[in-house]
Amino acid sequence: MAEGDAVRVRGLRKRYGDVVALDGLDLDIRAGEVFGLLGPNGAGKSTTVEILQGHRSRDSGEVSVLGADPAAPDRRWKARVGIVWQDESAVTEMTVGETVRHFARYYPRPRDPAEVIALVGLEAKARSRVKELSGGQRRRLDVALGVIGGPRLLLLDEPTTGFDPVARRQFWELIRTLAAEGTTIILTTHYLEEAEALADRLAVIAAGRVVAEGPPGSLAGRAEARATVHWAGPDGVERSEETGTPTATVTSLARRFDGEIPGLRVTRPTLEDVYLRLIGQEDPR
């Protein structure tokens, strides 16, 4: 498995006029991992991704993507970085197959176009014109064009916005397949369950900085957070107790009920609870 950093960012700053978009952002993304960027609208997610892509300038800070500065990308670097933009493009008279085969020609070592079309589940549409595709199908074509060059790093900006639940699940499978092949994947998303399902690690961005970073299960002390034990009392009314030692609470309840505890549930803060707390306390100005 690959080692080392795919992305290293230190003290990244960017402002648009009077608006500070990035305010000293740091990131380390390891080669081969799926990394999720979370954050409210305007927090700086897209600006970060665009700077990593080499499509936006920065005011200051160090950025290294696959060992090079994306502000001065050369063709070999571009051949190793796949991009899926937030807003789809390429609504044309070309067919899906023509588009994918055409883009394959730009790269020194492209993947097999037919295989990529199958990977994104567009075999049945290979002969359709791009303008005839649905929104979700176009998005999958975008992903196909992002991976056709066989990138080491794939950058996806809100790839599943506007997907129905079935399309989203299919998309997750696609990301997992690419990750299993060893591609480093960075994705921004608004969907916390998506981040939880896909990402090995997450960073929450608020007001232009990383406010928390880690695996989804233990982000911001989520794993160590106090648990809540819920059960039903003899009168049928739900009781609950917040505790740092849920096992002890359950054991004592089991003794009290002499067996099964009616309506037993043990909950910890969801990713959403943690996320809302994180962005709430970082309310910009």
């Binding site: 892509q53 063709r75 571009k78 991009i83 493009s89 390429a90 883009f103 060059g149």
Partner: peptide, 13 residues
């Protein structure tokens, strides 16, 4: 329509 942007993201000269 961002066709140019997409091309800029590829190694096409």
């Amino acid at each position: 329509e961002k066709v140019l942007r997409r091309l800029r993201g590829t190694p096409m000269p």
